[in-house]
Design a protein around this nucleic acid. Structure first.
Lengths: 380, 380
DNA sequence: TCCTGATCTTAAAACGATTCAATCGACCTC
DNA sequence: GAGGTCGATTGAATCGTTTTAAGATCAGGA
């Protein structure tokens, strides 16, 4: 491990069938290393100062130094000032490991999300961080990437670190694992998912309401021949959104709902379904499409707007997505969508977590937020 | 903090001018809370077991228990088995705070990235995690979101946690801050950026080469009237890519480079520039476009492929982007792009970091990787 | 003067894992 | 059987902070 030579490391594997040509032929990822002659000032490492050093410099006891930092009201202003000066002078920074050891647990909250690239989760994380910071807690973020082993690795890490608590959008069934954490004094709150047996608190969004909201909007715009494009239906979120769509359609006697299943929530799958619509006789087409998420919606939009396709959005077909990702507003025709209150979910989850961490006898709670409709050009 | 009432929390602020309609009128984000009657099994919290408990149960000393976990070769098989049984039986999990306190520093590496939504950084993080795990280290991820205060908050956290080391794609000029960390024994390695005065190791990608690679490919495809769309040029990455483009064009006496500046690397800006091209007389149009990144390229593509526009890609205009984001391959016309070896950067950075953590006298190194060309339909 | 509080400060005992010098056996050799 | 060697095991010291009971100092009232 100590002899990393330039170019010895293997390159990233190629992920698809595209032709790849490295910049300098012969090496997948060649590298160029430069070493500066300057070396670090020898032994600048003057052993990080401890409370003991601060106490000595300020001429007080270590207990007083601790009080200055944690309960300033217990110490006279004169002494506090003297200690503060010493702290600044030595550049003292508290050793959190020692603090945690004494405290019995960390003042950090662990958050594991399914996909850190998804703006929903980053916004959620932001909300959690903000709320945690207000009470002096930090949040560290783990990305399970929908892989059980990665999820487990993070939970292990959080356990040895004796985290204050854990927020998680679970991938598999991990209630057993979470139960064990709770026995150790580490509470957990589920985000974006509900706990099957309600044994853990959760904060989630009502996807059924979201589906009803989307289709209700299409109906309110005068559309009647609705198509739902999404799948696979095994995904809870997808089937919930479809259920919502059904309930909305049921309120209009003359409205119909066509379900067009696809095999994944991707742009490509959406485009395929969209191309299919383009190929139909105009009278056979729906006059509105509800896509299970924004990626699918963008695929559909691409197909409809393609050169040669004679379908106008929203003229002939109104289109609405779900999730309100950044790209939704940057689409050729800005996309209407359903937005989830991501940051609010994060904030609320932290709030509940902190309460449970403070009082482990609290009964679990299930909080369900309602999504919001974002109207843009694609449904006007 | 102990009395969170449903609905008391304020909703997320609205980010753009879109019309927003909440699902249930009157509340921006209404919520629905359910409380289960069941309460936690009283006092299941049987105080987490410590080495002492394990030692007692196994009938050995604490030192031996520690040896079983950290230097199994120093302990007889019989005793090791006995201790392991005790560990399993008690569900013992090491308290990392105590371990760290004794060790003097954490076995965790901190990583701060500019934008956690950017696949480049998540791939980089993945590479870093994998490499770190191989040596028994963990990586925790912080998202500075290009905000100096968030960046500073993470560095503070890493300092009190006495991290083993820090990887960072810096936002502002933080060499002073990093120098302080280094004095405390926490080395830092810059990723995706080079250190101005070479006082820190860095692992980055050669954007000039990337620009040359992109345009070289266009020229090799027989294109001669190249346009570069990107901006603002103050961004180092943008101007480097443009410089690379210039050097490539200079190798062909009959090739020309038109620079079309835009005010941001967004889909919208790209579409505006693209619409401009569509408006030109066909003979005034370039026959190839190099967009400063994939978002811009997608905007350009949208404009060119729009209903009514009579421009074919790659027929009339070849198009290449930069970064190879997921969307690039899912575009209407799959987009050629320049890929950076993200995971490799992460791996290498960890490798260097671990070396420097082991030997603080090592001179800083600058490693520069070469990007790769990914050819798809848009340039064929 | 002495006592009573009030206020501020101290010293020592935790917290839990690691480490290292010391000890203990067991076995071998002379 | 004494001395030596080697491996396995022990136990006390250690890391840096927080906490707490006890101590010190001072002011004011009896």
């Amino acid at each position: 491990m100590h002899s990393m030579a330039c170019g010895r490391l293997s390159s990233t594997p190629i992920l698809n069938r595209s032709k790849i040509v490295p910049a300098s032929a012969g090496m997948m990822a060649s590298c160029n290393e430069r070493r500066t002659g300057a070396r670090q000032e020898a032994a600048g490492n003057h052993m990080a100062a401890s409370v003991k050093d601060v106490a000595a410099l300020a001429g007080v006891s270590v207990g007083t130094v601790s009080n200055v930092m944690n309960r300033p009201e217990k110490v006279s202003i004169a002494v506090a000032a003297r200690v503060q000066t010493a702290i600044d002078q030595l550049g003292f920074v508290r050793n959190d490991a020692a603090r945690q050891l004494r405290a019995g647990r960390s003042s950090t909250i662990g958050l594991v999300v399914l996909d850190v690239r998804n703006p929903f989760f980053t916004d959620l994380a932001r909300g959690a961080e903000d709320r945690a910071a207000a009470d002096g807690f930090s949040v560290i973020l783990g990305n399970s990437d929908e892989k059980a082993d990665r999820e487990a690795t993070y939970l292990d890490l959080f356990e040895v670190q004796r985290m204050h608590g854990v927020l998680i959008s679970p991938f598999g069934d991990i209630t057993e694992r979470l139960r064990r954490l709770r026995e150790r004094g580490i509470p957990a709150v589920l985000v974006d998912r509900t706990s099957a047996d309600a044994s853990f608190s959760s904060v989630s969004v009502d996807d059924i309401a979201g589906g009803a909201l989307a289709v209700g909007h299409l109906l309110a715009q005068g559309r009647r021949r609705i198509a739902f494009i999404g799948g696979p239906l095994e995904i809870q979120q997808v089937s919930d959104r479809l259920d919502g769509a059904r309930t909305a359609v049921a309120t209009h006697p003359d409205a119909t709902l066509e379900v067009i299943p696809i095999d994944g929530l991707t742009v490509i799958a959406g485009r395929t379904a969209g191309t299919d619509l383009v190929g139909r006789a105009p009278t056979d087409r729906p006059d509105a499409v509800f896509a299970a998420n924004d990626l699918v919606a963008m695929g559909v939009l691409q197909a409809l707007m393609m050169q040669g396709a004679d379908v106008r959005v929203p003229g002939q077909i109104a289109l609405i997505g779900y999730d309100d990702i950044d790209f939704a507003s940057a689409a050729v025709v800005p996309l209407s969508s359903i937005r989830q209150p991501s940051a609010l979910i994060g904030r609320t989850a932290v709030e509940i977590l902190l309460e449970e961490a403070a009082d482990s006898t609290l009964a679990p709670r299930q909080v369900v937020f309602q999504p919001e409709l974002v109207v843009r050009e694609s449904t006007l």
